[in-house]
Amino acid sequence: MLTVDTDISTARAVAARAAPALAILEMPGRQGVGFVASPQGQLVTNLHVVAGAEEIHVLLADEQFLRVEQVVALDEKRDLAVLQLPTPGVQALRLDGGSHPVEGDALFILLPAGGGMLGLMETRVDAVQVLDESLTFLELEATLPEDASGSPVMNTSGALVGVATCAFADGRPVTIVIPSRYVELLLEQPRMQPLSALALAKPAASRQRQVPSHPLSLLEGCATDGVEEIALAIMQAIQLGAPAYNQGDPKACYRLYERTAERLIQERPDCPGAQAALREGLLRCARLDDADACAWALRDTFDGLLQVIDRWLQAQAAFARLSSPWSYLQ
């Protein structure tokens, strides 16, 4: 059991509540993870874990070994699958579809640790990502093993807040959480199908963010006031553009981002590094086919600039403190 900084009694309580619901999925040539989400024996996992499987057996915490023959529901966009166990009355996790964790909140992931042992990974929400109007997910600080996709994610009260999913962004593995409210929708509207339905299932690939990582030298020679004005303009554009995107208008979002980038390029010759980053973002858009992709390309550009600006401002503040004649006397 692994914990980071939450009280050990909290971690133990979460593990005790969740452990009986964890399930190991045995399929020809591979294994997977899932969890029981209802007393009726409905088992949840990621769709990509079971897609194409012609046979699935499930090992439960009480050592029952069951054969899955029916699919309750599939959600290709959100990469979710609900399977029906033949034995009802098994212990299930308590869902909390009304929970909306925010950045910095502590979460726990229950996963197999080998040798019949369980591991409890504590992590925190790194970001709340809005892919589009139909999917919002959490990005976590911790990196989950690829074979642990489908593991349950709980809050500090032990309620399920989502499904842990291994994804990739900028060529690196990231852990995301598909919120439990999407699971509840599938449980409320079952569409019973034979196991053969998995043969045609194709989970949607998660959008890969391409946020550039800039060195501090990008802002070399820039005045503090100029850097702060660039950051303010970008944040204002995101505050206006993101709601437009979420309301189903990616073109309006992209046009707003585009105008902001073009204006900053024209108005900020005092920050050539920032100008170059914005030009690169616009060039990337020129190679893309649709407004949705362009909106995300410029959002990646903006996020990359905001990250380096934040680091640069922190470095400037630290330097100013060290340069103060009182810095060693305080």
Rank of each mutant, 00 (worst) to 15 (best):
L186S: 09
K202N: 13
L185M: 09
L160E: 08
Q210D: 11
L186F: 11
P203E: 08
P203T: 09
L198H: 03
A199L: 15
S206K: 01
V161A: 06
T175L: 08
R172H: 09
L186N: 10
H214Q: 00
A164S: 09
P179C: 00
P173E: 00
P179T: 01
V163Y: 08
V153N: 03
Y182M: 04
L185V: 03
E188H: 09
Q210K: 11
Q210Y: 03
Y182A: 05
L186I: 11
C166Q: 11
P145L: 08
N155Y: 04
R209Y: 12
S206E: 00
P145K: 08
A199K: 15
L216M: 09
A197D: 05
V174S: 04
V211Y: 02
L200E: 14
Q189E: 14
Q208G: 14
Q210A: 12
G171F: 10
T156R: 15
R181H: 13
L187H: 08
V177C: 06
G150C: 04
A164C: 03
A159V: 03
T156N: 14
L187S: 06
L187T: 07
L216F: 05
T175K: 02
A197R: 13
K202S: 15
E184H: 03
L198M: 01
A197H: 08
A205C: 14
S196E: 15
V174L: 07
S180D: 02
A148P: 00
P212D: 01
V183G: 02
M154R: 09
S151E: 00
Q208D: 09
V161I: 12
S180T: 03
Q189K: 12
P194V: 07
A197F: 10
A148C: 10
L185H: 06
S206D: 01
Q193I: 08
P173N: 05
A201V: 12
P215S: 11
L216R: 07
L198V: 06
P194N: 13
K202L: 10
S157P: 05
R191W: 05
L186M: 14
P212E: 04
P212Q: 02
P152D: 03
D170F: 12
S213E: 13
V177A: 06
V161W: 06
L187C: 05
E146C: 00
R191L: 12
N155E: 15
P190A: 08
R191K: 12
R191C: 10
A169G: 05
P152Y: 06
A169H: 04
Q189H: 15
H214N: 07
P215D: 14
A199Y: 12
M154Q: 13
T175N: 07
A159M: 04
E146I: 08
P190G: 03
C166F: 09
E184V: 10
A167N: 07
S157Y: 03
